[in-house]
């Protein structure tokens, strides 16, 4: 149970750091910490085989989102 509290506190800390940071490139690593924390919290909240799929789907989805934002921020190699 204490693991869940540690994970939640780390999520709030990472979100505070991400909100204070101004530079987009340095903001993304803080958001990445929050994604790790939330993906861990999903599994810790509910012990069910599907929660592993939910954690993986959340993590891959948010990584894809960060990837898209970062590559557009870099100038966009793949012009749509």
């Amino acid at each position: 149970m204490i693991a869940l509290y540690i994970v939640a506190v780390i999520a709030v800390f990472a979100v505070c750091r991400a909100s204070i940071e101004k530079n987009t490139g340095r903001k993304l690593p803080y958001v990445n910490v929050m994604n790790f924390a939330i993906a861990g919290a999903i599994v810790l909240l509910l012990d069910h085989p599907l929660s592993l799929v939910a954690a993986a789907a959340y993590f891959v989805g948010s990584t894809l989102e960060a990837n898209a934002i970062a590559s557009t921020y870099a100038g966009g190699v793949r012009r749509g």
Partner: peptide, 10 residues
């Protein structure tokens, strides 16, 4: 990927 290089530059 290009986004990783942008974060590294920042």
């Amino acid at each position: 990927v290009s986004g990783a290089s942008a974060i590294a530059r920042d």
